[in-house]
Amino acid sequence: MPEFEFYQGEQPKNYEQKCACTLVLDVSGSMAGQAIKQLNLGLQQFYIDILKDVTALSRLEVQIISFSDIIKVETDFALMDDDYHVPHLTTRGTTRLVDAVRQGIQSIEARKRWYKESGQTYYRPYVILITDGAPDGDQDVKGLEKEIYHGVENKHFNFWAFGVEGADMGFLRKISHPSFPALRMKGIEFVTFFKWLSNSMGTITHSKEGEKINITPKNEDENPFQITL
């Protein structure tokens, strides 16, 4: 029987479809000490893990916003490739959480507009909040709650809130959409958390719109949450 050769050569040069992800990170005074140290280590781990995932590396565009009494875009949307610089976060001040999440949502909407204008299809974007506290008293919590519900319900973006030790989980649960309930992290295990997050973003960037994705940690060692597997 002769050998038959189906095509094994190069692929067409198609550009990857992008998945925008905004990390909204609490750097208020209460995060000082071990928490901020672990958060910085976690971000480094996230970068290392994304570098190893060829698909996520070419599809995931990450923006990092830090918030205290100041809201700062630490890095704008970019692939986490060899040129990427992981910011080093430092703590200060209070917790303008609501304003920071709103800034994240606005950034995501602007990025989506750019994708559309430039003719690119994109994965549903993610806004990911990590905090160890509660918003300052003057923040418009009800308004944010509505904004997030409307955005997630209408498939404009997904929103995930993660609470570190000390976080007001009642508040986080309140602003979260039922399809993405807020989760409490184990202590300040940011390295484990970001390992899980990079795995999850890897799964998401392989998926199709509307598909239910199982991103539950596979074993207790990989579980960065206070949930029973």
Binding site: Y7, S118, T121
Partner: peptide
Amino acid sequence: WYCWECNVKLEDKDQYIDPNKPFKQF
């Protein structure tokens, strides 16, 4: 993605198009 030109960047432009073209070699 493996056999069709479907998301191509225009040279020197920040613009992407779907040429919708079967990949001849494949």
